[in-house]
Structure formats: structure tokens, C-alpha cells
Simulated scan of single mutants.
Amino acid sequence: MSTDITPHDGERHDSGVGNRLNWLRAGVLGANDGIVSVASLVVGVAGATTDTPALLTAGLAGLVGGAVSMALGEYVSVSSQRDSERALIAKERQELAEMPEQEFDELVGLYRARGLSEATAQKVAEELTARDALAAHLEVELHIDQDDLVNPWHAAFSSAVAFVIGALLPLLAILLPPPAWRVPVTFLAVIVALALTGTISARFGGSSKRRSALRLVLGGTLALLATWLLGTLLGATVG
């Protein structure tokens, strides 16, 4: 292997902190999906009928179906990520067994690229290689901890829970008020919730909080208006 410090093709560079922030961001986005999808569903039904059982059935169907869909999607996605990480670990283990000297030179080069002197990089590489060569290469080259790989079951459960938490807000907002207030209260609750999730998401991503919140509020409001108008038209047609 060349001593070029360019990472292997297909190798990932997520740090442990980055992974944790991604989980938090995914939770916020999952809750946001629950808010928008279930709110759009129940507001659309409310445009067609004021029948409470119909609203409850539609809301619960959207909540359960959405949570299952989110969990399955996250499970498949994270399973693929874990398989990729395991393949990279196996590849690095094989390279260390077949070409230890080249891998050592690569490790030294990576530490030099981080600003260490040649002597210090050599010393650090020697000590880490003596302790656990594979762990050293995984950390520096791939930012992977072989003892802390992503768990698809945790991801699926977290995604489903986040969706359910978000979905409960519009479901309660459409069911608890008197019929005349159901749609306005749901609109207001969703707008506030989307502004909050947009602000939190922007904080994790380091982007503009105002822009992120406004984007979500506008998108969610348009979705609610579209489904409410559709439900109103269908309700009038059927009636």
C-alpha cells in the first residue's frame, strides 16, 4: 500500500460526536415528520367531516403506519451502514496482516497531516500500534470504533418513538377542542411545533434558526392548507 494519506475509497469519516449529533437531529426530524404527516391527514379528514370517530381512526392509522414505516426505513438504512462499517473493519484487518509496514507508514503520515512532527508522529504510531494497531487505524483513518458500531434496532426504535411523539400533537389538537375550533387549533399547534423543531434542528446543524424555522412553518402550513382544501371539496361533493 502506498504511504499516501488519502483515505481508502468508500471509507467513512463520521466522528463519535458527529454520530451522536446525527442521532439527535434524526430524532428531531422524525418528530417533525410525525407532526406534518398526521396533521395533514387529520386536517384533511376534518375538512370533509366533523365526525370524531372518523378523525380518531384516521389519526391513529396515520400514527401507527407512519411509525412503522419510519422504523423500517431507519432499520434498513442503519443496517446498511453497519454492514459497511464491518466491511471496512475487515478490510483494514486484512491490510494490517498482509502489509504491516505500509500500514504503519500510512499511520505516521496521517498523524503528520494532523500537524505532528515526524519524530512525534513516529512515536505516537509506534505506541498505538503496539497497543492495538487495528483500533489505531480505525480511529485515525475511518473514525470508527469497532466496539461501538451503529445499532439498527436502536435506530428503528428511536425513529418510531420520535414519530409517535410528534404525531400525538396534531392528533390531540384535532380531537380535544370543540368541532368549530379543531382546524384552527391544529394549525396553530403545528405552526408552533414546527417553529420549535426547526430551531432545534438549526442549532444542531449550525445554520440559521430563523431560516430553518420559517422553512418548516411554510412547508407545513402549505401541506395543511392543501389537505384541508381537498377534504373540504371532497366533503362538499359527497354531501
Rank of each mutant, 00 (worst) to 15 (best):
N32S: 07
E92R: 04
A26Q: 12
P53F: 15
R114E: 15
A61M: 08
E98L: 02
R20I: 04
M99Q: 11
V17D: 09
V108A: 03
N19H: 15
R114K: 13
L21Y: 14
D51E: 13
G62W: 11
R82M: 06
G10L: 02
R12L: 07
A54T: 11
R82S: 06
A71P: 00
K91D: 13
L56A: 13
L63W: 14
A87G: 01
P7I: 10
G109N: 09
A119H: 07
G30L: 05
N32I: 02
L56E: 10
E106L: 02
Q102N: 08
D9N: 04
A119C: 00
S77W: 03
V64K: 03
V78T: 12
Q81N: 10
A46I: 00
V78H: 05
L56Y: 14
R112Y: 10
G10W: 15
T120D: 13
V17A: 09
H13Q: 14
E11P: 00
V108C: 02
Q102G: 02
E74A: 05
V108N: 06
I89Y: 06
A26E: 14
V45M: 03
T52Y: 04
V78L: 03
G18E: 15
G66P: 04
S69C: 05
R86E: 15
N32H: 09
A71L: 03
V17C: 03
